[in-house]
Design a protein around this nucleic acid. Structure first.
Lengths: 120, 120
DNA sequence: GACAGTACTGACAAATTTGTCAGCTACAAT
DNA sequence: ATTGTAGCTGACAAATTTGTCAGTACTGTC
């Protein structure tokens, strides 16, 4: 995709996609809808993501105000992420994306290995 | 972004984003919600898109079943695109993306609390 | 004939995104 | 002194996406 940067958005749809349109951002938000998770927990729950990409996307989502980052200021580090108050305004968007996506996956030769709701 | 290819989708949200997540796909769909448009009409209505990208995205959207392509079989060519029946199932998704995107655009540069520069 | 309009394609380069891999911090346990 | 931990960063390469530019086919106009 196709990352659309904020300033380039031609229409509201693009503006929204510029926030949630990264390679792993949908998955990350999907994991977090059920509650906060620690960095390593997220990483383990998304098998094919690399730590680099996870952290990069988390930073972007935090910068966009969609996620909150909680640092327990401990050693070793203890950081967790959760959907922010502003991020929760995305709920209807995510719900529609999710239900359409479910139907779309069932259409034609679907890919096995499904998309059960967030494990762990 | 971040194009997510169908087979790689980890969750329904990704599956949906794999269809509408291209650099210009949001804009294209946005232009077409009001009715069919010819290729050149679309191109002129999206100032910064190149013909190459427009056609490439149109082909992908047609391949995903979201758009219909009508070729009048005339010379010079007369081709128009419209949202297909299946594509219309995207309407609620687009509506939510659009209204969230509108609100997001009005929300100046995100400066969420807690983003103070590192102490030290 | 030269040129414009329309939808589209292909080769290639530039830009952007992602992956790989090493290393950092600060403390605790061995 | 060495190793381990959790979260994170930077350099670099690979992969992917996008832009640039030329060219196709056919017809109508000057």
């Amino acid at each position: 995709m196709a990352v659309i940067r904020d300033k380039e958005a031609e229409c509201p749809i693009d503006a929204a996609l510029s926030v949630i349109g990264g390679r792993w951002k949908g998955t990350i938000l999907w994991r977090l809808v059920d509650g906060p998770m620690r960095t390593g927990e997220l990483r383990r729950s998304i098998p094919r993501i690399t730590e680099r990409m996870l952290i990069r996307h988390l930073k972007e989502l935090v910068a966009d105000g969609v996620l909150d980052r909680h640092d327990a200021q401990e050693v070793p580090p203890h950081v967790s992420y959760s959907i922010s108050r502003y991020g929760r305004t995305l709920t209807p968007v995510l719900r529609e994306l999710c239900s359409w996506g479910e139907a779309h996956m069932k259409r034609g030769p679907a890919e096995p290995g499904g998309c059960a709701p967030p494990p762990i």
